[in-house]
Amino acid sequence: MSALAILLNFISIVVAGIFAGLLGSLTGLGGGTVLVPVLTLFYGIPIIFAVGASLISTIATSAGSASAYTKQRIANIKIGVGLEVATTTGAIIGTLTFAYVNANKMQWSIYVIFGSVLLFSLFPTIKKTLMEVPPDIPADWTTKLFQLTGSYFDAKLKKIVNYKGVRWWAGEIVMFFAGFISGLLGIGSGALKVMGMDWAMNLPMKVTTTTSNFMIGITAATGSSIYWRLGYIQPFLAAATAIGVVIGSYFGAKILVRISNGDIRWIFFGILSFLGVEMILRGLYLNHIISTPPLIQFAISLAVSAMMIGSSYIVVRMERRRIIHVR
């Protein structure tokens, strides 16, 4: 390949990184969720390098946008660090599992697990389009012991939101799995982190997504150190994706403070459901469980994701109308 062709290839990977970083920080799910499918499906990059580059770039997505959120004091660093006890432990075990899968030539299973995790991340995301601030539930013994209270100024609601978290132990359990998935798939696993803080601990969505963004970097740093020694990081690729996601996440953070929670999830849902179905099909194809040619897989993924978005959109609209009607 000529130097010019290599340069163009490098730039095109940077562009993929920008795209991934933008979506990753907008949702708090991290750039890797978009980056791994894009690199493997469209660039034909081996999954070990895609996962390696993705995980290390995820740190950049996280740090870039978390720097903006901590300054605005939306992210709760104390809660984040406390939950990192579980995510870093999970990340170590997840990374070692990824090494085992690679040593045993079972990479196809990573595609299938990746796609499934992606699709399952979407359900809690869709459900939450209906709510900005969580229902008020009474404090429990963990609220006081682990100091799970805080407040932030919501620019859209134009008021200070006071909140209190509950069920710290449930949050830790979910976070362990979030860390495990992060190490196994090279993603920030923000969806699971968001679920841990939102569903288990009842924290507001803005606090959840921004704290998750902050935590993703710490989890990813744990996994990346092990990946480095195992040789899963291709420096040339990681350089391109890191540059891309930093740019993408920078703009993502700027946009996030201006748009509502509901809007964010709809954009994300569409693209991710497509990538999720496509990853599952590719995994099954690689293991010869299905023999559908890639172009047909592409069409199937497009149709299935269109159906999923369409039906979810209708359900959410009906639910919204019902809520308004009840009021």
């Binding site: 390949m1 990059i45 070990i48 195992l230 291709q234 040339f236």
Partner: peptide, 30 residues
């Protein structure tokens, strides 16, 4: 990255080798 492109490689590896993404032969972090 700029130095790698200007020198057409690094550490005795050509630009072609450094940008190679084959899982068996690529230059990796180990």
């Amino acid at each position: 990255t700029m130095i790698v492109f200007i020198h057409n490689g690094s550490n005795g590896f050509s630009l072609n080798t450094l940008s190679n993404m084959d899982s068996n032969t690529a230059v990796n972090s180990s």
